[in-house]
């Protein structure tokens, strides 16, 4: 199963990942539209991003969430009704929502952020 593996100990809070993610998917540098979120807690950085655990899949009322061949949890926006139950039920709070957006969004382990992280705190891994 493919997922974005994080090494928070390496993170220096550059937040390039947030910019890359929101640029890649929403053509904006607005970090609130990034599936990966970096937060400073007590002088250290925490990286919050979907670990592809799949607990959201049975929560969805319209079966809009499923795993693709690589094991990545994907949202089918055509089926999605924007109820956001997956957001409330995500055990790591990594399913995102934004008032500009009807549907939620999440990390699809595309890897775009990996190459932009100067500290090499991110990598695409298999579990």
């Amino acid at each position: 199963m493919k997922y974005l593996k994080t090494s928070p100990a390496k993170c220096q809070g550059v937040r390039a990942c947030e910019k890359t993610c929101s640029q890649t998917f929403f053509k904006t540098g607005d970090p609130s539209k990034s599936a990966i979120q970096v937060k400073e807690v007590g002088g250290k950085f925490e990286i919050n991003v979907c670990n592809q655990c799949g607990e959201c899949i049975p929560i969805c009322p319209v079966k809009a969430l499923s795993r693709n061949k690589l094991g990545v949890v994907m949202l089918d926006k055509k089926l999605c009704v924007g109820c956001l139950m997956c957001v409330g039920y995500c055990p790591t709070l990594s399913m995102r929502t934004h008032p500009d957006l009807r549907e939620p969004f999440k990390c699809v382990a595309c890897g775009a952020c990996v190459k932009d992280c100067p500290e090499k705190a991110l990598e695409i891994a298999e579990r």
């Binding site: 999605c80 009704v81 924007g82 109820c83 956001l84 139950m85 957001v87 409330g88 039920y89 929502t97 934004h98 008032p99 500009d100 009807r102 549907e103």
Partner: peptide
């Protein structure tokens, strides 16, 4: 086909915030 904004609400974000909060309480 139903989507999340079919009522054309005045403030979708305000509804989303209340909804996610309640979903989380259920969780």
């Amino acid at each position: 086909q139903v989507k999340g904004d079919m009522n054309h609400p005045a403030d979708l974000g305000r509804i989303q915030r209340a909804g996610v909060k309640l979903h989380r309480e259920m969780h």
